[in-house]
């Protein structure tokens, strides 16, 4: 009997530890990001670091301004959202309201598949197909640019937007739509004036999820954006926050390396804010039903 009780105690302790591991992991990641990111920001100066327009990490007199990276990440993400959201939302509407069950059932795996493709594969296809097309269409010397990154990111965030929006649209109470039809509204009027507005918070959650994905993507962007520390311009080679880290990490040392950790901290803060917004939205969405 004693033995049994001991085992019982040990197992409940083990399960508690497993649960606690998740909290420990998040805390460890946050602490390490902050500790390793702060020193370089202090040494360089907050203003010079965040608002400096020049990044020359390997020059004799190095300059560590990450404004180009921040703006590129913001513009790149915004562009991807601008393209991805309408297409994603409309596809979600198709799946939720127009397609019959058979078509929807064979369409959904497509979306899941799109989500499962590794980012390096997106990067490779972007590099081989998209970059030359952009180069030829716009008569550029080099096709690796912000536009290429935006297009790749727009495709990559589609699955998040589609699946979250579809869930939200499916959850709209049937009565709302029936009431709209009873008042004489057409199908499209019902979808766009009743269904979408009532699924709003879920759709916004999908968009925020997409923003998080886009701002955190590194490899695919690395392969198509050119990775030069320019201020963002649609047809210029640019560096994102993520690619600034990836590009130099392999050989960086000293202050340069510390500055890369500071970039990671900035990215981490962006992500945490986005996650916070997402959590609030998802709670709101599920609370209203």
């Amino acid at each position: 009997m004693k033995m049994k009780e001991a085992v019982e105690k040990i197992m409940s302790g083990f399960f508690f530890l497993c649960g606690a591991t998740t909290i420990i992991a998040v805390s460890a990641i946050s602490i390490y990001m902050v500790i390793s990111g702060i020193p370089a920001i202090i040494e360089i100066g907050v203003k010079e670091f965040l608002l400096g327009e020049v990044w020359k990490s390997t020059a004799a007199e190095p300059k560590f301004g990450i404004l180009p990276f921040i703006l590129t990440s913001v513009f790149g993400t915004f562009g991807a959202i601008l393209l991805g959201v309408p297409i994603g939302l409309m596809t979600a509407v198709f799946l939720s309201k127009l397609a019959n069950e058979k078509i929807a059932a064979s369409f959904r795996p497509t979306v899941e598949l799109l989500a499962g493709i590794p980012s390096v594969v997106y990067g490779l296809v972007g590099m081989i197909v998209l970059v030359p097309v952009i180069m030829n269409t716009f008569g550029l010397k080099n096709g690796t640019c912000l536009l290429a990154a935006i297009l790749v990111l727009a495709i990559m965030i589609l699955p998040s937007i589609i699946s979250v929006s579809e869930t939200a649209l499916n959850a709209v109470p049937k009565e709302y739509e029936e009431a709209s039809y009873a008042l004489g509204a057409t199908k499209m009027e019902t979808i766009f004036k009743v269904s979408i507005p009532s699924a709003k918070s879920g759709i916004v959650a999908g968009i925020v999820l997409g923003i998080g994905r886009a701002i955190g993507e590194a490899m695919a962007v690395m392969m198509v954006a050119g990775n030069v520390a320019n201020m963002p311009e649609l047809f210029k080679s640019v560096t994102f926050l993520t690619t600034a880290i990836t590009k130099e990490m392999a050989y960086a040392s000293g202050l340069q390396r510390e500055a890369l950790f500071s970039i990671a901290l900035v990215l981490f803060i962006f992500i945490m804010v986005i996650n916070g917004i997402l959590n609030v939205l998802l709670k709101k969405g599920s609370g209203s039903k």
């Binding site: 998740t22 390490y32 994905r213 993520t242």
Partner: peptide
């Protein structure tokens, strides 16, 4: 505690790979 663990799981799911890469490298 449940909320804290669930929040931690949600946070872990939202952290991008590149951050995991750096944190993993450091830790």
């Amino acid at each position: 505690l449940t909320h804290a663990i669930e929040f931690a799981i949600e946070t872990l799911a939202g952290i991008p790979s590149i951050i995991y890469g750096l944190a993993g490298y450091l830790i």
